[in-house]
Design a protein around this nucleic acid. Structure first.
Length: 176
DNA sequence: TGAGTGATCGTA
DNA sequence: ACGATCACTCAC
């Protein structure tokens, strides 16, 4: 059996542009620790939200209390509630003051961003959590880079034709 | 196909 | 202060 080197992903990795980071996160291993348990899943689906000019991005209205995490340097989490029911988990990307984030839409056999957070127990308290220094959540790279396909982003009809049609959703092909 | 649910933000 | 909006899911 091939033994791979599991490398924890650090700050620098996350400051690249969201259009590089979002597809690159496919295949990375998300690790979540509680007092007694540790679970891990591979990331299988992501979506990119890119700056104030992106009319699908929350930051299109500028920096507010809600969008504040996106203006941090890449590597922290941006967590928010949608439809009154579902927590969404995003990994902030890019340099400081450039609001970009990657929505985690799927892990292994978990499809849908609401199910992802429900399964992992991700709630508002994970907002601003730093993936490089956190003891309870971080990412590992074991070198696997799945091939993937692209598609338009979901649930952003309000963003207008241009932004709606961009294929900024990345779906990993099943791992052999 | 539409009900459920509540934080957020624009308009006052 | 109120009301519209919303990176969703599940049951019909």
């Amino acid at each position: 059996m091939l033994v791979r080197n599991h490398q924890k992903l650090k700050d620098d990795y996350f400051t690249s542009d969201v259009l590089e980071l979002a597809p690159d996160l496919l295949g990375k291993i998300l690790v979540l620790k509680t007092d007694k348990t540790m679970v891990s899943f591979r990331i299988t689906e992501t979506e990119a939200y890119r700056g104030e000019e992106d009319l699908a991005c929350h930051a299109r209205k500028g920096r507010t209390k809600r969008t504040d995490p996106m203006y941090y340097p890449g590597g922290i989490l941006y967590i928010y509630l949608i439809y009154g029911m579902y927590w969404m988990m995003n990994i902030v990307a890019g340099e400081k003051n450039i609001p970009q984030a990657v929505l985690i839409r799927g892990l292994d056999d978990i499809r849908g961003p609401g199910k992802v957070t429900k399964t992992l127990g991700i709630v508002k308290s994970f907002n601003y959590e730093n993936l490089s220094t956190s003891k309870r959540i971080y990412l590992l790279d074991d070198g696997l880079q799945p091939t993937y396909s692209c598609a338009p982003r979901v649930g952003i009809d309000y963003a207008g034709e241009h932004w709606k049609n961009l294929e900024w959703r990345f779906i990993a092909n099943p791992i052999q």
